[in-house]
Computed example of a mutant assay.
Amino acid sequence: MKVKFSQFIFAFLICYSFCSFAFAQEKPIALKFDEFDDSGKNPFYSDYEKLSFFQRVERFLKQLEKERGATVYVIYYQARINNQDVREMFVNGANGISNLIEYNDRIKVEGVVIMNGGYREKNTIEFWIAPKNADVPRPTPTLDKSETFICPNINIYANVHLDDEKTIDFYVRSENFKELDNYTLRWNVSGGEIIKGQGMNYIVVKLNDSTVKRVTAFLEVDGLPYPCQKVSTKTAQVRGELYLLDTFDLVASGEFKTLLDSFMSSILSNPTAKVYFIVYGSRAQGDRDAAKRISLIRSSLKFRGYDMSQLTIVNGGYRENVSTDVWIAFDNAEPPEPTPTVDKKFVKKFVQPKKQPRRKQ
């Protein structure tokens, strides 16, 4: 059968167009949506764009509403110098993103993958969006594990005894090192006399001067890895009217309970003293943060059997990140005033997300 020249040309053009189109279609690639580290004081806060971890996640979730069928990759990198509390908090934050996506019924992605990318100079998180059939993004660590250090988060706590003994107990608690026997500990105090514990993980300070209002303990730890912080301090209020005992934001569960015990020990020997917990919600989460923190403080103190009549828990408004100020008032001093830093107008109103129904297999 003879084929006309015009038919041949037509078939050739169709084949050429199809083949050109096929070769022109490149394989889709994964796209990086965001990357940030913990440049700020808070491990969930970046100084570069002044956006909190939660604000970045919110921005990411909005983008995912447009990415149907894609696969989400969250890659986290651990810092060269780290402590276990911050590392766990950062990793848990990365893992928590998958829950936020699962409970958002407006997001229809194929799946969420959390990847340990290795080590970099700072704790870092990357958000990736991979279209269907795209290759998995490759982590890009900049350090080997041998170049990293785990440093202890050395926290000093104080118990004040204003009874007949008139002493202060200072002690150090580390989440990372169960024993401090391998290190040399040197204590110094701004007032009083160390009568017990020098060289150990606690000291007892005798108050010889009745006019001393506060005592600061200084602890130097020798033998830690070179980059680790070797000096820590703690001030114990002995006398005075109103004193800011401590301020803390995001802390690990174990440290949180230890903080509460330390705060309460400050009033056990002084029945006229009172402790005020002023709780601030965050700009990104608002009243949700404050309510959770207040509930946790109240339940933890009740569980430990503390006298709640000496405690006052106050919702202080809002700050950039959830935080708590702990005040101790002696001799019927006036209660402390809250010091919020963000007006309610600029705080996001939290709405409980609906749980996405599970798909039938």
Rank of each mutant, 00 (worst) to 15 (best):
M1L: 07
M1S: 12
V3W: 09
F5H: 11
Q7S: 14
Q7N: 12
I14C: 05
Y16L: 13
S17E: 09
E26H: 12
P28G: 03
F33R: 12
D38K: 08
S39Y: 07
Y48L: 09
E49R: 09
L51Y: 10
F53R: 14
Q55H: 06
Q55I: 02
R68T: 15
I75M: 01
R87E: 12
A94P: 00
S98M: 01
R106T: 05
R106P: 02
V112P: 09
W128E: 00
P141G: 02
T148N: 02
T148R: 02
C151S: 01
P152T: 06
N155W: 04
N159K: 13
E165N: 06
D169H: 10
Y171K: 12
T184M: 05
K196H: 15
A217G: 10
Q229L: 09
T233V: 05
A236N: 03
L244E: 03
F256I: 00
I278P: 04
G281C: 06
R283K: 15
A284C: 03
A284K: 12
G286P: 06
R293I: 09
I294W: 02
S295D: 12
I297M: 02
S300N: 08
S300F: 01
G305L: 05
S309A: 05
S309D: 14
V314G: 07
T324Q: 01
I328H: 02
P340V: 12
Q352G: 05
